[in-house]
Design a binder for these strands. Structure first.
Lengths: 144, 144
DNA sequence: GCTAATCCCTATAGCGGCTAGAGCTTCAAG
DNA sequence: CTTGAAGCTCTAGCCGCTATAGGGATTAGC
Protein backbone atom coordinates (compact mmCIF):
# COMPACT_ATOMS: atom_id res chain seq x y z
CA UNK A 1 0.00 0.00 0.00
CA UNK A 2 2.58 2.49 -1.07
CA UNK A 3 3.01 5.24 -3.61
CA UNK A 4 5.62 5.20 -6.31
CA UNK A 5 7.84 7.61 -4.41
CA UNK A 6 7.91 5.48 -1.28
CA UNK A 7 8.50 2.37 -3.33
CA UNK A 8 11.40 4.02 -5.07
CA UNK A 9 12.93 5.13 -1.79
CA UNK A 10 12.50 1.66 -0.32
CA UNK A 11 14.14 -0.05 -3.27
CA UNK A 12 16.72 2.57 -4.09
CA UNK A 13 15.31 3.22 -7.54
CA UNK A 14 14.31 6.57 -8.95
CA UNK A 15 10.68 7.23 -9.71
CA UNK A 16 10.99 7.69 -13.49
CA UNK A 17 12.98 4.47 -13.62
CA UNK A 18 10.10 2.57 -12.03
CA UNK A 19 7.69 3.94 -14.60
CA UNK A 20 10.20 3.02 -17.27
CA UNK A 21 10.38 -0.56 -15.98
CA UNK A 22 6.62 -0.73 -16.11
CA UNK A 23 6.54 0.59 -19.65
CA UNK A 24 8.98 -2.00 -20.92
CA UNK A 25 7.16 -4.75 -19.08
CA UNK A 26 9.68 -5.61 -16.37
CA UNK A 27 7.14 -4.61 -13.75
CA UNK A 28 3.43 -5.39 -14.17
CA UNK A 29 1.04 -2.49 -14.61
CA UNK A 30 0.36 -1.22 -11.12
CA UNK A 31 -3.21 -0.81 -9.89
CA UNK A 32 -4.30 2.80 -9.49
CA UNK A 33 -5.93 4.89 -6.81
CA UNK A 34 -9.14 6.82 -7.51
CA UNK A 35 -7.02 9.75 -8.52
CA UNK A 36 -5.06 7.63 -10.96
CA UNK A 37 -1.86 7.21 -8.96
CA UNK A 38 -0.03 3.92 -8.92
CA UNK A 39 -0.31 1.79 -5.77
CA UNK A 40 2.25 -0.83 -4.83
CA UNK A 41 2.32 -3.70 -2.37
CA UNK A 42 5.11 -5.73 -0.82
CA UNK A 43 5.29 -8.08 -3.75
CA UNK A 44 6.04 -5.18 -6.07
CA UNK A 45 8.76 -4.05 -3.69
CA UNK A 46 10.38 -7.46 -3.75
CA UNK A 47 10.29 -7.58 -7.51
CA UNK A 48 11.79 -4.13 -7.81
CA UNK A 49 14.53 -4.96 -5.31
CA UNK A 50 15.33 -8.02 -7.33
CA UNK A 51 15.71 -5.90 -10.44
CA UNK A 52 17.77 -3.30 -8.65
CA UNK A 53 20.11 -5.85 -7.19
CA UNK A 54 20.60 -7.59 -10.50
CA UNK A 55 21.26 -4.25 -12.21
CA UNK A 56 23.89 -3.46 -9.58
CA UNK A 57 25.54 -6.73 -10.50
CA UNK A 58 25.59 -5.62 -14.10
CA UNK A 59 22.93 -7.88 -15.55
CA UNK A 60 21.34 -6.32 -18.62
CA UNK A 61 17.59 -5.84 -18.45
CA UNK A 62 16.94 -8.69 -20.85
CA UNK A 63 18.82 -11.10 -18.61
CA UNK A 64 16.80 -9.80 -15.68
CA UNK A 65 13.64 -10.41 -17.62
CA UNK A 66 14.71 -14.03 -18.04
CA UNK A 67 15.58 -14.37 -14.36
CA UNK A 68 12.23 -12.94 -13.33
CA UNK A 69 10.39 -15.40 -15.54
CA UNK A 70 12.41 -18.20 -13.98
CA UNK A 71 11.67 -17.06 -10.47
CA UNK A 72 7.98 -17.06 -11.33
CA UNK A 73 8.26 -20.80 -11.94
CA UNK A 74 9.79 -22.01 -8.68
CA UNK A 75 9.53 -25.68 -9.56
CA UNK A 76 11.58 -25.58 -12.73
CA UNK A 77 15.27 -26.35 -12.86
CA UNK A 78 17.87 -24.05 -11.48
CA UNK A 79 20.18 -24.60 -14.44
CA UNK A 80 18.88 -21.71 -16.51
CA UNK A 81 19.34 -19.18 -13.73
CA UNK A 82 22.77 -20.58 -13.09
CA UNK A 83 23.60 -20.15 -16.76
CA UNK A 84 22.55 -16.54 -16.81
CA UNK A 85 24.71 -15.84 -13.79
CA UNK A 86 27.69 -17.65 -15.30
CA UNK A 87 27.38 -15.69 -18.51
CA UNK A 88 27.35 -12.50 -16.52
CA UNK A 89 30.37 -13.59 -14.52
CA UNK A 90 32.30 -14.31 -17.66
CA UNK A 91 31.39 -10.91 -19.11
CA UNK A 92 32.61 -9.27 -15.92
CA UNK A 93 35.90 -11.18 -16.02
CA UNK A 94 36.49 -10.14 -19.60
CA UNK A 95 35.90 -6.51 -18.73
CA UNK A 96 38.30 -6.68 -15.83
CA UNK A 97 41.04 -8.06 -18.06
CA UNK A 98 40.55 -5.36 -20.63
CA UNK A 99 40.43 -2.62 -18.08
CA UNK A 100 43.66 -3.85 -16.54
CA UNK A 101 45.37 -3.65 -19.90
CA UNK A 102 44.10 -0.11 -20.28
CA UNK A 103 45.25 0.72 -16.80
CA UNK A 104 48.80 -0.34 -17.43
CA UNK A 105 48.96 1.49 -20.71
CA UNK A 106 47.64 4.67 -19.17
CA UNK A 107 50.14 4.36 -16.36
CA UNK A 108 52.99 3.93 -18.76
CA UNK A 109 51.84 6.89 -20.79
CA UNK A 110 51.63 9.12 -17.76
CA UNK A 111 54.86 7.90 -16.24
CA UNK A 112 56.77 8.75 -19.39
CA UNK A 113 55.34 12.23 -19.60
CA UNK A 114 58.20 14.69 -19.29
CA UNK A 115 55.92 17.44 -18.04
CA UNK A 116 57.23 19.75 -20.66
CA UNK A 117 55.32 21.12 -23.61
CA UNK A 118 52.72 19.38 -25.71
CA UNK A 119 55.16 18.85 -28.55
CA UNK A 120 57.14 16.45 -26.38
CA UNK A 121 54.21 14.97 -24.49
CA UNK A 122 54.14 11.20 -24.39
CA UNK A 123 50.43 11.20 -23.71
CA UNK A 124 49.66 12.87 -26.99
CA UNK A 125 52.39 11.01 -28.80
CA UNK A 126 51.30 7.57 -27.72
CA UNK A 127 47.70 8.30 -28.58
CA UNK A 128 48.74 9.40 -32.04
CA UNK A 129 50.82 6.34 -32.82
CA UNK A 130 49.60 2.97 -31.84
CA UNK A 131 52.98 1.38 -32.48
CA UNK A 132 54.31 3.24 -29.44
CA UNK A 133 52.03 1.41 -27.10
CA UNK A 134 52.83 -1.81 -25.37
CA UNK A 135 50.19 -4.16 -26.68
CA UNK A 136 47.01 -4.70 -28.53
CA UNK A 137 43.90 -3.34 -27.02
CA UNK A 138 40.37 -3.41 -28.25
CA UNK A 139 37.34 -1.30 -27.64
CA UNK A 140 35.67 -2.03 -24.36
CA UNK A 141 32.04 -2.18 -25.25
CA UNK A 142 28.82 -2.07 -23.37
CA UNK A 143 27.73 -0.69 -20.05
CA UNK A 144 29.49 -1.82 -16.88
CA UNK B 1 44.32 11.22 -51.16
CA UNK B 2 42.03 8.56 -49.89
CA UNK B 3 38.34 7.79 -49.77
CA UNK B 4 36.37 7.35 -46.58
CA UNK B 5 36.39 3.58 -46.92
CA UNK B 6 40.14 3.36 -47.22
CA UNK B 7 40.58 5.78 -44.38
CA UNK B 8 38.33 3.70 -42.18
CA UNK B 9 40.18 0.51 -43.05
CA UNK B 10 43.53 2.16 -42.35
CA UNK B 11 42.44 3.52 -38.98
CA UNK B 12 40.23 0.65 -37.91
CA UNK B 13 37.10 2.79 -37.77
CA UNK B 14 33.82 2.11 -39.52
CA UNK B 15 32.67 4.43 -42.25
CA UNK B 16 29.49 5.71 -40.55
CA UNK B 17 31.54 6.40 -37.45
CA UNK B 18 33.86 8.68 -39.41
CA UNK B 19 30.90 10.61 -40.76
CA UNK B 20 29.56 10.79 -37.23
CA UNK B 21 32.84 12.21 -35.95
CA UNK B 22 32.70 14.82 -38.65
CA UNK B 23 29.15 15.73 -37.77
CA UNK B 24 29.95 16.30 -34.12
CA UNK B 25 33.06 18.28 -35.00
CA UNK B 26 35.77 15.86 -33.88
CA UNK B 27 37.02 15.69 -37.43
CA UNK B 28 37.05 18.78 -39.67
CA UNK B 29 34.76 18.81 -42.67
CA UNK B 30 36.59 16.87 -45.34
CA UNK B 31 37.15 18.41 -48.76
CA UNK B 32 35.11 16.80 -51.52
CA UNK B 33 35.75 15.40 -54.94
CA UNK B 34 33.84 16.73 -57.95
CA UNK B 35 31.26 14.07 -57.36
CA UNK B 36 30.81 15.09 -53.74
CA UNK B 37 32.78 12.32 -52.05
CA UNK B 38 35.00 13.05 -49.10
CA UNK B 39 38.75 13.05 -49.67
CA UNK B 40 41.23 12.48 -46.89
CA UNK B 41 44.97 13.01 -46.55
CA UNK B 42 47.58 11.67 -44.16
CA UNK B 43 46.84 14.32 -41.58
CA UNK B 44 43.24 13.16 -41.39
CA UNK B 45 44.44 9.59 -40.93
CA UNK B 46 46.66 10.62 -38.05
CA UNK B 47 43.85 12.50 -36.40
CA UNK B 48 41.46 9.60 -36.79
CA UNK B 49 44.03 7.14 -35.44
CA UNK B 50 44.50 9.39 -32.46
CA UNK B 51 40.77 9.35 -31.81
CA UNK B 52 40.54 5.62 -32.28
CA UNK B 53 43.39 4.92 -29.93
CA UNK B 54 42.02 7.21 -27.27
CA UNK B 55 38.59 5.59 -27.59
CA UNK B 56 40.19 2.18 -27.15
CA UNK B 57 41.69 3.49 -23.94
CA UNK B 58 38.23 4.49 -22.83
CA UNK B 59 38.49 8.25 -23.13
CA UNK B 60 35.06 9.80 -23.70
CA UNK B 61 34.70 11.86 -26.86
CA UNK B 62 34.68 15.11 -24.91
CA UNK B 63 38.03 14.29 -23.36
CA UNK B 64 39.34 13.44 -26.79
CA UNK B 65 38.11 16.76 -28.07
CA UNK B 66 40.16 18.45 -25.34
CA UNK B 67 43.23 16.37 -26.15
CA UNK B 68 42.94 17.20 -29.83
CA UNK B 69 42.75 20.90 -29.09
CA UNK B 70 45.83 20.56 -26.92
CA UNK B 71 47.75 18.70 -29.58
CA UNK B 72 46.94 21.50 -32.00
CA UNK B 73 48.90 23.86 -29.74
CA UNK B 74 52.25 22.09 -29.49
CA UNK B 75 53.92 24.89 -27.54
CA UNK B 76 51.56 24.94 -24.61
CA UNK B 77 52.15 23.05 -21.40
CA UNK B 78 51.80 19.35 -21.15
CA UNK B 79 50.01 19.57 -17.82
CA UNK B 80 46.50 19.65 -19.23
CA UNK B 81 46.98 16.52 -21.32
CA UNK B 82 48.56 14.85 -18.35
CA UNK B 83 45.52 15.77 -16.28
CA UNK B 84 43.08 14.32 -18.77
CA UNK B 85 45.05 11.07 -18.85
CA UNK B 86 45.21 10.93 -15.07
CA UNK B 87 41.47 11.45 -14.78
CA UNK B 88 40.94 8.60 -17.21
CA UNK B 89 43.31 6.38 -15.28
CA UNK B 90 41.47 7.05 -12.08
CA UNK B 91 38.14 6.27 -13.74
CA UNK B 92 39.56 3.00 -15.00
CA UNK B 93 40.87 2.07 -11.57
CA UNK B 94 37.50 2.75 -10.01
CA UNK B 95 35.79 0.55 -12.55
CA UNK B 96 38.22 -2.28 -11.94
CA UNK B 97 37.53 -2.16 -8.22
CA UNK B 98 33.80 -2.26 -8.71
CA UNK B 99 33.96 -5.03 -11.23
CA UNK B 100 36.10 -7.10 -8.90
CA UNK B 101 33.49 -6.73 -6.18
CA UNK B 102 30.83 -7.87 -8.64
CA UNK B 103 33.00 -10.74 -9.72
CA UNK B 104 33.39 -12.12 -6.22
CA UNK B 105 29.70 -11.74 -5.49
CA UNK B 106 28.75 -13.52 -8.68
CA UNK B 107 31.21 -16.28 -7.89
CA UNK B 108 29.80 -16.71 -4.43
CA UNK B 109 26.28 -16.77 -5.78
CA UNK B 110 27.09 -19.42 -8.35
CA UNK B 111 29.19 -21.51 -5.98
CA UNK B 112 26.34 -21.75 -3.53
CA UNK B 113 23.86 -22.82 -6.15
CA UNK B 114 22.62 -26.28 -5.24
CA UNK B 115 21.65 -27.05 -8.85
CA UNK B 116 18.21 -28.07 -7.72
CA UNK B 117 15.00 -26.24 -8.53
CA UNK B 118 14.44 -22.52 -8.77
CA UNK B 119 12.74 -22.40 -5.40
CA UNK B 120 16.05 -23.27 -3.74
CA UNK B 121 18.30 -21.42 -6.13
CA UNK B 122 20.82 -19.14 -4.49
CA UNK B 123 21.13 -17.05 -7.61
CA UNK B 124 17.50 -16.04 -7.48
CA UNK B 125 17.48 -15.85 -3.72
CA UNK B 126 20.48 -13.58 -3.42
CA UNK B 127 19.17 -11.29 -6.10
CA UNK B 128 15.88 -11.00 -4.27
CA UNK B 129 17.37 -10.12 -0.93
CA UNK B 130 20.25 -7.75 -0.72
CA UNK B 131 20.98 -8.68 2.87
CA UNK B 132 22.11 -12.11 1.66
CA UNK B 133 24.98 -10.66 -0.28
CA UNK B 134 28.44 -10.07 1.05
CA UNK B 135 28.87 -6.36 0.74
CA UNK B 136 27.64 -3.07 -0.54
CA UNK B 137 27.73 -2.57 -4.22
CA UNK B 138 26.74 0.35 -6.31
CA UNK B 139 25.65 0.78 -9.86
CA UNK B 140 28.53 0.68 -12.27
CA UNK B 141 27.79 3.54 -14.59
CA UNK B 142 29.04 4.62 -17.95
CA UNK B 143 30.64 2.90 -20.87
CA UNK B 144 33.89 1.00 -20.37
C1' DG C 1 -12.04 24.28 5.26
C1' DC C 2 -8.31 26.32 2.88
C1' DT C 3 -3.90 26.84 1.21
C1' DA C 4 0.62 25.62 0.02
C1' DA C 5 3.94 22.31 -0.52
C1' DT C 6 4.88 18.10 -2.10
C1' DC C 7 3.89 14.52 -4.42
C1' DC C 8 2.03 12.27 -8.68
C1' DC C 9 0.58 12.01 -13.76
C1' DT C 10 1.64 11.85 -19.08
C1' DA C 11 4.39 12.78 -22.89
C1' DT C 12 8.39 13.99 -25.18
C1' DA C 13 13.20 14.65 -25.89
C1' DG C 14 17.91 13.83 -24.78
C1' DC C 15 22.33 11.48 -23.17
C1' DG C 16 26.76 8.75 -25.33
C1' DG C 17 28.58 6.57 -29.14
C1' DC C 18 27.56 4.73 -32.42
C1' DT C 19 24.77 1.33 -35.91
C1' DA C 20 21.37 0.11 -39.42
C1' DG C 21 18.49 0.96 -43.12
C1' DA C 22 16.30 3.22 -47.24
C1' DG C 23 17.00 5.10 -51.45
C1' DC C 24 19.78 7.51 -54.09
C1' DT C 25 24.70 8.89 -56.93
C1' DT C 26 29.49 8.21 -58.18
C1' DC C 27 33.35 5.62 -59.34
C1' DA C 28 36.59 1.92 -60.93
C1' DA C 29 37.27 -2.53 -63.24
C1' DG C 30 36.44 -5.41 -67.06
C1' DC D 1 29.44 0.68 -71.46
C1' DT D 2 27.90 -1.96 -67.97
C1' DT D 3 27.91 -3.60 -63.59
C1' DG D 4 28.67 -3.73 -58.82
C1' DA D 5 31.01 -1.84 -55.04
C1' DA D 6 31.44 2.09 -52.50
C1' DG D 7 29.92 6.58 -51.72
C1' DC D 8 26.10 10.02 -50.41
C1' DT D 9 22.10 11.99 -47.13
C1' DC D 10 18.65 11.31 -43.91
C1' DT D 11 16.17 9.09 -40.44
C1' DA D 12 15.51 5.93 -36.80
C1' DG D 13 17.14 2.75 -33.35
C1' DC D 14 20.16 0.67 -29.63
C1' DC D 15 20.54 0.69 -23.88
C1' DG D 16 19.05 2.32 -19.64
C1' DC D 17 17.76 5.62 -18.06
C1' DT D 18 17.24 11.08 -17.01
C1' DA D 19 15.22 15.59 -17.59
C1' DT D 20 11.79 18.74 -18.69
C1' DA D 21 7.13 20.69 -19.38
C1' DG D 22 2.71 21.28 -18.01
C1' DG D 23 -0.52 19.68 -15.62
C1' DG D 24 -3.58 16.90 -11.44
C1' DA D 25 -3.70 14.50 -6.61
C1' DT D 26 -2.69 14.38 -1.93
C1' DT D 27 -1.35 15.78 2.47
C1' DA D 28 0.24 18.73 6.40
C1' DG D 29 -0.40 22.76 8.80
C1' DC D 30 -3.22 26.53 10.20
Amino acid sequence: MSTIGRLGAAAGVKVPTIRYYEKIGLLPEAPRSEGGQRIYDRKALNRLRFIRHARDLGFPLEAIRDLLELSDQPHSSCAAADGVARAQLSAVKTRILRLKALESELERMIAECAHGVIADCRVIEVLGDHSLCGHEHHPEAGTL
